[in-house]
Computed example of a mutant assay.
Amino acid sequence: MINHHVYEELVRIASKQNVLMNECLKDHLYTKLGGKADFFVTPETYEQVQQIVKLANKENIAFTLLGNGSNLIIKDGGIRGIVMNLGKLNKIAGNGLKITAQSGARIIDTSREALHLRLTGLEFACGIPGSVGGALYMNAGAYGGEIKDVLESCIVVDRNGELLNLAAEELALDYRTSNIPDNGYIVLEGTFALQAGDYEEIKAVMDDLTFKRESKQPLEYPSCGSVFKRPPGYFAGKLIQDSGLQGKQIGGAQVSLKHAGFIVNKENATATEYIELIQHVQATVKEKFGVRLEREVRIIGEDLEK
């Protein structure tokens, strides 16, 4: 049941054009999977984010933060309560050797701004598809670099709707993890400390990494990127390949023929099919090699009622 009082309060906080009811979430995700949100809200200011968190607390209504969905699967039953997306908070600004990027900006665009400003340190992020908020959330990394290497500080909203200024060290950044989810933080912006560099040298590194990514990754189909974390001493993609799973398909979901570490939405897959294929890959690799593949991708939401 849609709570119209909550809808009216959300409209009062964020204005009508930023509040949608029964919004189809697959339109907002890289995987093109997932059901509907009761309320889909896209705030335009930090104060609006604070007020929405406080409203959810006051009304005791479920609250979910959605980035740009590059590392997320939402189940076919969708998400109850309020889903907030920070895509309209997307400003990127340079200041000397630092760049501050809002949560909804793409980390790719942040690395391009660093190039424009002749700043080095963010080249590794030139192919990471997530938002800045998502990149901090999971300490995103690629090609030997990670957010932990360059993040100086961030501004977050806590569970009570209060603004906090945090140093990078306070986020417990580690391999594809942070304390952001455990603390219920909503990242509003991150500030990156970089170094002066040569434009052509920075561009050459970014061009090389972009070529590597485009030649190896199945970017022609929707996906959530690399599905599994790298198990100690192994490569997830090679284990999957050596298990004979490349090309394995359940419904419209397929283990990529181009890179076995990716599962692609090849033919209008459902989230259920995608998740079943993930579980099949995990079970097969465990059986053949005794290695447990841990998901890098998050799965949230409700199953479709039968």
Rank of each mutant, 00 (worst) to 15 (best):
L122Y: 02
G134R: 01
E123Y: 01
A172M: 10
I202L: 03
E146W: 06
Q102W: 05
Q217N: 06
E214F: 03
Y175M: 10
E146C: 12
P181G: 06
A135M: 09
T210M: 08
D207T: 11
D158C: 12
N179S: 08
Y143S: 11
F124A: 03
E123T: 09
D158A: 05
F124P: 12
M206C: 02
K212W: 04
A204Y: 01
G134T: 02
L117M: 13
Y199D: 07
A193V: 00
P222C: 11
L164R: 15
M138H: 03
N160E: 14
G144M: 04
L122F: 07
V132M: 09
R118Q: 15
I186R: 01
L117N: 08
L122K: 03
L119V: 10
N165A: 15
Y185S: 11
L166Y: 02
I180V: 15
A168N: 03
V156T: 11
E170R: 09
T177C: 15
G144T: 15
P222F: 11
S131C: 07
G134V: 08
A105M: 07
G127N: 05
E146T: 11
I128L: 15
D198T: 12
I99F: 07
G121A: 06
N165Y: 01
L115D: 04
E169M: 06
A168V: 02
E162W: 00
D207E: 13
T210W: 10
E170A: 15
T100K: 12
P181V: 11
V150F: 03
A193Q: 14
N160S: 14
E189M: 06
E200T: 10
P222L: 13
E146F: 00
Q102K: 11
Y185P: 04
D208A: 11
L209N: 12
K216T: 15
Y199V: 05
P218I: 13
Y221C: 13
K212R: 15
P129R: 06
S223L: 04
Y199G: 00
R112Y: 15
